[in-house]
Design a protein around this nucleic acid. Sequence first.
DNA 1: CATGAATGAGAGTTCATTCAT
DNA 2: AATGAATGAACTCTCATTCAT
Lengths: 212, 212, 212, 212
Amino acid sequence: MKTQKRDAEASKRAIITHAIALFSEKGYASASMDELAKRCGLNKAMVFYYFKNKKGLYEAVMQEVLDQIQEAVMEENKTHTRPKDELAGFIRTYAKFACEHPYLPALLLKELSDSGAVVPDMLFGSMRKLFALFSDILKRGEEQGCFEDAVPMILYFMVLGTLNLMVTTKPLRLKAAQLDDIALDTCAECDIDEIADYIVEKMMYMLKEKNR
Amino acid sequence: MKTQKRDAEASKRAIITHAIALFSEKGYASASMDELAKRCGLNKAMVFYYFKNKKGLYEAVMQEVLDQIQEAVMEENKTHTRPKDELAGFIRTYAKFACEHPYLPALLLKELSDSGAVVPDMLFGSMRKLFALFSDILKRGEEQGCFEDAVPMILYFMVLGTLNLMVTTKPLRLKAAQLDDIALDTCAECDIDEIADYIVEKMMYMLKEKNR
Amino acid sequence: MKTQKRDAEASKRAIITHAIALFSEKGYASASMDELAKRCGLNKAMVFYYFKNKKGLYEAVMQEVLDQIQEAVMEENKTHTRPKDELAGFIRTYAKFACEHPYLPALLLKELSDSGAVVPDMLFGSMRKLFALFSDILKRGEEQGCFEDAVPMILYFMVLGTLNLMVTTKPLRLKAAQLDDIALDTCAECDIDEIADYIVEKMMYMLKEKNR
Amino acid sequence: MKTQKRDAEASKRAIITHAIALFSEKGYASASMDELAKRCGLNKAMVFYYFKNKKGLYEAVMQEVLDQIQEAVMEENKTHTRPKDELAGFIRTYAKFACEHPYLPALLLKELSDSGAVVPDMLFGSMRKLFALFSDILKRGEEQGCFEDAVPMILYFMVLGTLNLMVTTKPLRLKAAQLDDIALDTCAECDIDEIADYIVEKMMYMLKEKNR
DNA sequence: CATGAATGAGAGTTCATTCAT
DNA sequence: AATGAATGAACTCTCATTCAT
């Protein structure tokens, strides 16, 4: 006899998957382990069997999420060689991923707005790699003369900040578009690829001011 | 001379003031009214005496905070006439305010990352004015030929996103600077004015691509 | 200068009047002094100025209510001389009063169902007189041979119980009449005089079994 | 052998049992879930584990209580065939049950005096059956010529009103007997069977006025 | 006589977490 | 591996009551 209902790995995955959704919907504090268990169709105690506690689960969730985005970006990065293409790819890949997995921006903004109150150490480790890549692209770009005066940290947050906010505020902007007069364009209908393209274009201008 | 106790206005202000700090530290869900009362040196029931309930207090807090930033920006805006100066002023004023009142970025990012889960209606009203100004500056700039191809919504979030993240992640970045190797520059020591200047400069390049 | 706004007596009366309504609507425990003050248009502290505390107010309310019904019944009783007329008058007067002042049955049933948990001593004093009259009518009736085998306590509760329940359950019975099939007649439309007449008639049969 | 702790059924029963007592002592609003848990020897949270909330518990309590009295009356009713016996049996059974389970009158009077403020819907369903039986007995009695001019709703409340008040006021009447002069007989020592017999006798006279 | 501010105790309810099976 | 029962601490909110003016 193998397993009773589901094997351990499946249960663990179910928990992580639903936890990602729950945490990004409700935020850390408002996410209830009771509801999580219900969504998973598992007993509440199982959550504590597989993960030390709520914080432990949240860490696993963040790990998972950061790993996913990293892998997506890293993988895509391999297909380019020129820094300009790499930067464009970075932005477009992040945008696409964020749009398809909208929990990412929600979790990330919440976590960053607390300076990593819940999982500080992990943010270093996991976000570092992504930032390191971004930083490296810019540095190489500068060395090759295609970028100028790049401050990676600021530009990194410029990309992440813009994209994350555009994704998380989408429902808000849609609602605003309906209620509001037409005077203000909230980009309610823009799709994420257009937005990414716009950012890419602007970033290029930004970084090539002299050599035009 | 007024007394210190039994002063309604003083009590109400104390509650708002400490609530701003508490909510931005802990987020809405994790902020406890018990602790708030303790910080204020008031009885817990007073919070509910002056504000209908936790949500009502939070709304008052957001209102206050958004009013403050708006007024600061609007006021400063009057001192300029040319769109380019206005845009630079907007960015620098926001940056300065956010740095001096670091609760603003924290509250704003949290609220926006939930699409205004707690106070949706207010975000429209209060944030709209700021965005309307930003949008107007860009539009006039385009009319006068000093800006080109501006999409206000995206650029607005670019400014807010970058600045808010730079402010809220400051402690995180400082910590990273100490622990990490020196390979990655996290701008740990940059002060906000430099950051604002950098953003202003880059935005200008961004918006004047053709006419150089 | 006489008074500031209303004189003391008027305020006190307003409190009692609204308290009667409030207590009979919500019951003792659920009646809030805050709401009472609001209904009176007075400051909450005034309630405690005029009445020692909530219990004291409730006692005053019960006193008032019992005094009213007593006076109504006693007064009417004077117009009769024969025990049969007196009994009929008692029932009809109580019924009429209860119907016009529906707080009476509500308050009385609640208080009696607790064995006078809130105001035990007063119930003695105030209810005693009414019961004494009822008892006396029956005794004289027996002496004069028009009643037989009367147990005043039981008959007293029979009259009060029936009438009080018919008055307090009126809304319930109306609702039942609408929802229910027609099989069960809940007397939803009976008016209180018919009910009183019916009870009078039946009581008469009850008490004259032998001499027919 | 089952354990005593970790026995769901036992815990649930304990809660219901003590809740019946508590609600009938204090009424709905004044019954505290803290005290209930203490009386049960359980953690307060268990109450909410087994019952949705206070109201849900109260509904369960009323359901239980109404089911009990119904079953007792219905069961006894099967042993009779003639309407007169059925009516007598109804009254005596109700009386006996009310005396042995004195929470019933307390709960019932409180609930009825609010017109079912707390559990309106249930009162229909559950009380309806009892009233339907009572009503049916009278109707059949009239068809068979042993009762005349019966208005079931009024007579039903006459029976319930009298018995419930006699039961709930017992402590009050005992106290009155001690304090008061002897002039007024409060039936302090009457036992419930005598009272029931008296009511039965009187009801019979009431309903057979013509055919004597 | 009247008010608004203040308080402490307690209410119902939720929740992360652990225990026993 | 999995469950339901149990817990204690915390939470938001209400209320009767009192104080200072």
